[in-house]
Design a protein around this nucleic acid. Structure first.
Length: 256
DNA sequence: ATGCCTATGCGACATAGA
């Protein structure tokens, strides 16, 4: 089973690229972020024609997450518990073929310090609580998404250029590291332990051409999912297409 | 020191992204 995460940066703007990628990569599950549409306007029929069921948690204009799956999916959570006032669509979770999968769009947190950074850290704390509940289930789980966290200086083209950014702050990194120490395996780093691996390249300043990237899209695997991992990687080519998202898809292959 | 691009919206610029 191949499970991918892809921040598409707008469904309407990205639909042709997205359908091309689904046809070429044929993931069994695709966790999408930044769909930037209300659920009612998500092009369910186009994905159905491509062979995918859809679960959608959208909102107007910004954010929004979805899970596409070849097998039928059973929704297990919509939104993260812990803050009833939080109306941003950033978390969707489902059972697909015996694997629990979450599509995560973590808050960016800039500028920091400030309320947006506080929201990011609070969201990370809520995610840690949900992650602990999921570990206790003792089933294969894949937490897939745009974490907006650059885990280490090896995951960024220039640590100094990003030193004041919310994505590299010690508090953001500590929360991510706590997830790893709790038992979650970073699939990309399990496959490629050393050297730069990027999943995002800014539209500005020729970042793609210069390979000025960041690694912020992650696949965290519970122990039972990690046991089944065959391979993991980034579909770099997708970022080089015309009218591409600023993120590339990241995928993991599980046995069975 | 700032903007560089891109997407969206009750568009005519503002906001958000990262």
């Amino acid at each position: 089973m191949r499970i991918a995460t892809f921040n598409i940066n707008g469904t309407a703007a990205r639909l042709p690229r997205l359908l091309e990628w689904l046809a070429a990569a044929a993931p069994d599950v695709a966790c999408l972020q930044e769909i930037k549409t209300v659920s009612e306007n998500f092009p369910v029929q186009a994905f159905r024609d491509a062979g995918y069921h859809c679960l959608v948690h959208g909102q107007k204009g910004f954010n929004g997450v979805a899970i596409l799956s070849k097998l039928p999916a059973t929704e297990t959570a919509r939104g993260l518990a812990g803050d009833d006032a939080d109306e941003q669509a950033r978390y969707l979770e489902a059972d697909v073929g015996g694997v629990r999968v979450a599509s995560i769009y973590l808050p960016n947190g800039n500028p920091q310090p400030g309320p947006k950074f506080d929201y990011k850290l609070a969201w990370l704390a809520r995610l840690e609580r949900r992650a602990a509940e999921l570990l206790a289930l003792e089933v294969p789980v894949v937490l897939a998404g745009d974490y907006n966290v650059i885990p280490t200086d090896e995951d960024v083209f220039s640590a100094t250029a990003m030193a004041d950014d919310a994505l590299t702050q010690p508090e953001s990194r500590a929360a991510y590291r706590r997830l790893l120490y709790a038992g979650w395996m970073d699939a990309i780093r399990a496959r490629t332990p050393v050297g730069p691996v990027y999943t995002f390249w800014d539209y500005q300043a020729g970042a793609w051409a210069r390979n000025n990237g960041l690694r912020i899209d992650h696949l965290l695997l519970s122990p039972l999912a990690a046991d089944r991992m065959l391979d993991a990687g980034v579909d770099f080519k997708v970022r080089g297409a015309e009218r591409a998202s600023d993120h590339a898809p990241v995928w993991v292959a599980l046995r069975g």
